[in-house]
Amino acid sequence: MKSENVENVTYGSTELRRTFILVVDDEKRIADTLALILESKGYVSEAAYDAVTALEVCRARTPNLLISDVVMPGMNGIELGIAIRRDFPSCKVLLFSGQAATAEMLEHASADGHHFELLAKPVHPVDLLEKVEQLLGAGDIGTVPARAS
């Protein structure tokens, strides 16, 4: 059975900032600093440095939001995004990348019916937080119902 972020459901809409956000980047410093920033804004955040670890984290506790780099060794961010949407549909996905080539990768994914939002690195933390708020506010994250597995 997949675990849901039960904590959020219990705390209700006023406890939105207890939302769990998973940050994935093979550049450890980026993943770590972003997780710290999100933590400082009251989110629960964890950093993973590759897609496989990220999926393991998800299995332990489904995030409300995944923020992932695109170009990573092994499984890339797009593949990770597709897997997460399939296995954890309640989790929103936001990609960010410093490579122009990712635009093409996204187009290919889009042609296959997988649409992702992409932020270009470097993205200022203020802008990123705004985007996060916007994404999480769009869905009623605070009251995510428990899913049947």
Binding site: R29, G98, K121, H124, P125
Partner: peptide
């Protein structure tokens, strides 16, 4: 872009 992202975060 990657180091810049890190720098931006660190300065923040």
């Amino acid at each position: 872009n990657n180091p810049l992202e890190a720098v931006t975060n660190l300065l923040y």
